[in-house]
Computed example of a mutant assay.
Amino acid sequence: MTIEHFDAIYQRAAERKGGELQLELLVSKPLSQAELQHITDDRWLAAFTMKVFQCGISWQVVRKKWPNFESLFFNFKLEPLMMLPEEIWEQKAQDPSIIRHLTKVKSIPKNAQMIHSAQFEFTSFSHMVAHWPTDNIIGLWQYLKKHGNRLGGNTGPYTLRQMGVDTFILSSDVESHLRNIGVIDSARGTKRAMQAAQKAFNHWQQQSGRSLSEISQIIAYSCGDNQVL
């Protein structure tokens, strides 16, 4: 199978977005390793929690209530949260100032434990993420799914992207493109599909010298319903 050359994808995206300059203005770049390592544990937990709550709920509604989340959950500081007993979590889940959803609230201590535990193997969670090899970024997705709570599917990857990690996203547009060119031929969440996607993105990264994040965005802009008329 011959994978479409990245130059062709880029030119199609540029044409759809009004030229190369306009396309470049739309494409965001990931943070450096040094920048990622400065992210504190509480900000990782806050980001994971926000994405968990945004699943199936208006993102705008979650953002509007977010100051209340920060206040109720000690600004997502790991130590006080990990000390709370079960009954307190159930009480907090009923607080009318946030979005009341018990199972999502219970993801907070579980993801706090995941972040905390990373320091024993990787120095810190930020250090682990910053040094995770991009040619196996799906391995980081799987880590979040295995050791975290409610971070499977696109929840984990979208959080990573939001925090500045260099990762591609299997959005509907990107997935559709990968299927159209024959890279993916199985369900999106299968090991086979993720490995095939990773291999294709590694190939495009070698061709272009761009980050996975940039490549992913450019592919999305090259197809779908986002054309500038």
Rank of each mutant, 00 (worst) to 15 (best):
H116D: 15
K65P: 00
K146P: 01
L21Y: 09
L23W: 01
F73D: 07
D95Y: 05
H38G: 12
Y221W: 05
A112P: 00
I9S: 05
R188T: 13
R43H: 05
I108S: 05
I115D: 01
T159G: 07
T103A: 11
E35S: 14
L144Y: 04
N68A: 15
R100V: 07
M114R: 04
D95S: 08
K77W: 10
Q113Y: 05
L25A: 15
T134A: 15
K51C: 08
Q113L: 06
Q113F: 06
N136D: 04
R150V: 07
L26H: 02
N180H: 14
N202G: 11
R12E: 08
L160T: 01
A93L: 07
L31C: 13
G189C: 05
N136M: 03
K17L: 05
G56V: 14
E175N: 02
K29D: 13
P80D: 10
G182Y: 01
T190N: 00
T167Q: 07
F53G: 05
D225M: 15
L78K: 07
Q119Y: 05
S107E: 11
G164P: 04
L160I: 01
I219V: 15
W44R: 14
A47D: 05
A118Q: 09
W66R: 00
M194W: 01
M194H: 06
E121C: 06
Q60S: 14
A46I: 06
G19P: 09
P80G: 12
P85I: 13
H203T: 00
A14Y: 06
N226Y: 07
R150K: 12
M194E: 10
Q91I: 10
G56D: 10
A197P: 04
F76R: 06
G152M: 12
A187D: 13
Y143H: 11
T190H: 02
N136K: 02
S222K: 02
A193W: 00
Q205G: 04
